[in-house]
Design a protein around this nucleic acid. Structure first.
Ligand SMILES: [Zn+2]
Ligand SMILES: [Zn+2]
Ligand SMILES: [Zn+2]
Ligand SMILES: [Zn+2]
Lengths: 138, 138
DNA sequence: CTTGAACCTCTAGTCACTAGAGATCGTATA
DNA sequence: TATACGATCTCTAGTGACTAGAGGTTCAAG
């Protein structure tokens, strides 16, 4: 049995964030000492590691709730887990695509100005004023 | 002179968002009719297009504030504009890198489960439980 | 002059935390 | 056993960039 600070150190999840996860229903309510402080065991550590890992992979709290629900019922079909993972992949890919388009424009914009000129003639400002200067949609 | 709804249509920025930009100081306070409704002209349209374009490229409100400040002083050095654009590019590239790492892991995770199994044996859930299964850091 | 869409302000909600106030607890040392 | 002090507790509010809704007013067409 260890404290929330100890759990925080082991998982690298900040203390207030752990309490937040509990409030959101991701973590079961922890046992308490006589003085009302949270105490955790190996189980709690594993559950928090799961959550942390899922967050690192970009899953939303809501998605993680579903995944945990599934984990608590070993006999259920894992169809939902598959579809959550797949749609996470789809949305990551969409973001990458979008960011690559931005990157292209930003490269052009940055290249067009070396910072030595004057605001009036600045290619950065001109580019922002006129989307027509952009190579493609973004 | 046209209404906020008209401005919204022309720029594709939603009406409440226009008011929000005004509140944040991105847009100067608009002129008003006798009945207190906002009226805009070509100038307002151009300023909003600038803001919208900068937002589309991922610049923060704060960054846009600096850029507008610069635009309002044509004789100033454009050094700040250059550095804002450059650091935006850096942060976009960082995000892309991070998302690509996520993408790799998500591909592996999705492939490992076709959704036909049972929660207990699900590769998605196993992968989330154990970062050791990941190919690299993310 | 009447109708109804568009406008006004203000508050609160979104997401996933983060920060801070003010009070209590747990434990190591004297 | 007493004291100190870091860790913990709850609660409220703030972040960024909007979005939604309530309740009331104005504009413009017919
Ligand atoms: Zn420049
Ligand atoms: Zn553009
Ligand atoms: Zn599965
Ligand atoms: Zn991992």
């Amino acid at each position: 049995m260890f404290s929330i600070g100890e759990l925080s150190k082991r998982t690298k999840v900040k203390v207030p964030t752990i309490r937040y996860y509990e409030e959101m229903g991701l973590l079961a309510e922890a046992e308490r000492t006589a003085g009302n402080q949270r105490r955790y065991d190996k189980d709690g550590l594993e559950r928090l590691s799961f959550i942390r890992h899922a967050r690192d992979l970009g899953f939303s709290i809501e998605a993680i709730l579903s995944l945990i629900e599934l984990q608590d019922h070993p006999d259920r079909s894992c169809e939902a887990a598959n579809s959550i993972a797949t749609s996470q992949l789809v949305s990551v890919r969409a973001k990458i695509k979008q960011l690559k388009a931005l990157e292209k424009e930003l490269v052009r914009i940055s290249k067009g100005c070396d910072g030595s000129g004057v605001s009036e003639d600045c290619y950065v400002l001109a580019s922002l004023s006129d989307h027509g200067l952009c190579d493609r949609e973004h």
